[in-house]
Amino acid sequence: MSLVNLHQVHKYYGDNHVLKGIDLDIKAGEVVSIIGKSGSGKSTLLRCINGLEQYQEGGITVDGKEVTTEDIQVRRLALSVGMIFQNFNLFPHMTVGENVMLAPTIVLKKSKAEAETTARAMLEKVGLAEKFDSFPEKLSGGQQQRVAIARALAMSPKVLLCDEITSALDPELVGEVLKVLEQLAKEGITLVLVTHEMNFARDVGSRVVFMHQGKVWEQGDPKTILSNPQTDELKQFMGAVL
């Protein structure tokens, strides 16, 4: 049974046709890496899945429910879709613990104590239990991104969307974030990531989706598709990133 389903999704920014009929079906437990050149529509696709961007044609469902940008719909959606951003987007005026506890307390109406237990557990999971009372600005980029992951996990999402989450990090910090993702993948959480980390896509991912000019150009098992690309565009892309 599919968790995320996109059917002939079209998206325009004015005259600019960004997504040209995307069909994609993601099952629970899959780790899907979306790759492609910048401007190919990868991030837009992700932002359509969680209702941050409106699409004009086609349909998207998450867990059987239709996705729109209506406020109420987005809020219901937020309960099943977690999102991690390239720039972390932590709340700078709150401590790490408060960042993770905020949504569970005011959206899920959990008690402070209950939210704190969850928050500590999630921070433990990303290896930052001791940073509970620190402010985000005191943390490295890699640590901030791991807090962002913990914050999303605290809402126990069914699927986690990651939008180039290692792109803003110094090279030596990328590993710690990928390690957390790998751990999550092992635990069976559904991940959809826009990424440039080919090794991660090959070793951890269950599927690679190559996007080109607003279309799903080629997709399949990571090892097969990455070592033996069928289209010239993917060959060219692989040549450029490797």
């Binding site: 209702g51 941050l52 406020d71 987005v74 720039n87 987007n89 932590l90």
Partner: peptide, 14 residues
């Protein structure tokens, strides 16, 4: 940053 609004929205805040 616009990201503050987006992160809040993605966490389900009204």
């Amino acid at each position: 940053p616009k990201g503050q609004w987006e992160a809040s929205r993605c966490l389900g805040l009204s």
